[in-house]
């Protein structure tokens, strides 16, 4: 398993491509940040409405921005995979060892998983339907607020731990 992951996670072609073209890493960084902006803009705005900000907006119509947030998350995942699999272009470490030893990267991945579970909880508890039924000016149920607050907290945590990843790389 150890050897399998060590081989599987390292993509020498990606690292070589990053090393050969100086623009790849800054390009990915820029789109990683565009992704963060779209994610917080799209999903964060929905969470803030559920929490009680801008109550005049109907959450169901605010959902039109969610695909933008999903698009932003996808940008972050694609560029993030390039960062990890091409790690050796910047750090003399195998991606497997980085994932094994960098506690901030581990926390970031854990928080992304929690954010996914939180989204599942939003549907599984029926809160999604309850929020869809809200009319302008109406307050969301308490549990929906807890889930929306957790979503904001988890995504900000993902950004925070992401910024900390280089700390553990020395």
């Amino acid at each position: 398993m150890d050897a399998f992951l060590r081989t599987w996670l390292e993509w020498p072609s990606v690292a070589a491509f990053i090393s050969a073209h100086s623009w790849v890493w800054p390009l990915c960084e820029t789109f990683h940040f565009f992704g963060i902006i779209l994610l917080i803009g799209g999903v964060g705005m929905f969470d803030l409405r559920v929490l009680g900000m801008a109550r005049g907006l109907q959450p169901e119509t605010l959902k039109r921005f969610i695909p933008g947030g999903v698009y932003g998350f996808t940008l972050c995942v694609v560029t993030g995979v390039i960062f990890v699999t091409g790690m050796r272009a910047n750090v003399p470490m195998s991606p497997y060892d980085v994932i094994r030893t960098d506690v901030w990267l581990q926390l970031k991945l854990l928080f992304i998983a929690f954010a996914g579970l939180n989204l599942l909880a939003f549907y599984a508890t029926g809160m999604s339907r309850a929020v869809d039924a809200l009319r302008p000016g109406e307050d969301a149920p308490g549990l929906a607020k807890v889930i929306a607050g957790a979503s904001l907290f988890l995504w900000l945590g993902v950004i925070y731990f992401g910024r900390l990843i280089p700390e553990a790389l020395g």
Partner: peptide, 13 residues
């Protein structure tokens, strides 16, 4: 980065 996300994210939407 947090500030950027809220400033640019919300004003962008």
């Amino acid at each position: 980065t947090f500030g950027m996300a809220f400033l640019v994210g919300l004003s962008g939407m």
